[in-house]
């Protein structure tokens, strides 16, 4: 199907080497709308919204960023480390603004499972329901976030 120029521009900016070296879609064979639809369905099935998920992540991000790289405890069983970076990265959606580089590492101390995300990741979930493509460094599975933060 043909795309609108805006959709095309978003996909171009998600490609590897445009905004970041690996791009946003990883090696996911699905197209952007399918990725978003599948994750939205998973979130809705859990009785949640993207905003609720993004809010938990944003709160953890804020706590960890204030520690400037020192390990922080988000809850009894979630540990976080903020790895700072220089510079800012724009969103693939034009007009969203720019977001600080650097990444947050979250670890569930009970299971040892980890999540890696950036300030841009949180924005993409809140504003576009986009959890990035599978195989990408910052892909987040909605059920992993839900499990870690015990949202249901």
């Amino acid at each position: 199907m043909k795309q609108t120029p805006r959709d095309k521009a978003i996909l171009e900016r998600m490609a590897p080497g445009v905004l970041c070296a690996e791009g946003f879609l990883g090696d996911d064979p699905r197209d952007l709308s399918e990725i978003i639809a599948a994750d939205t369905a998973a979130v809705e099935a859990a009785g949640l919204t993207h905003e609720q998920i993004a809010r938990s992540l944003a709160a953890a991000m804020k706590t960890a960023m204030a520690e400037l790289g020192r390990p922080a405890a988000i809850s009894e069983h979630v540990a976080a480390v903020w790895r700072e970076g220089m510079g800012r990265i724009p969103s693939p959606w034009t007009g969203d603004g720019v977001f600080p580089k650097g990444e947050l590492g979250l670890t569930d101390t009970r299971t040892g499972r980890t999540l890696t995300l950036t300030p841009l990741s949180v924005h993409l979930i809140a504003a576009h329901g986009f959890y990035q493509g599978r195989g990408s460094r910052y892909r987040l599975e909605p059920h992993d976030i839900i499990a870690m933060f015990e949202l249901t």
């Binding site: 970041c20 070296a21 970076g85 580089k101 650097g102 460094r137």
Partner: peptide, 11 residues
């Protein structure tokens, strides 16, 4: 230069 994960130039 500090490595930025996924950074185009630092990589």
């Amino acid at each position: 230069v500090r490595l930025v994960p996924g950074g185009i130039c630092t990589t």
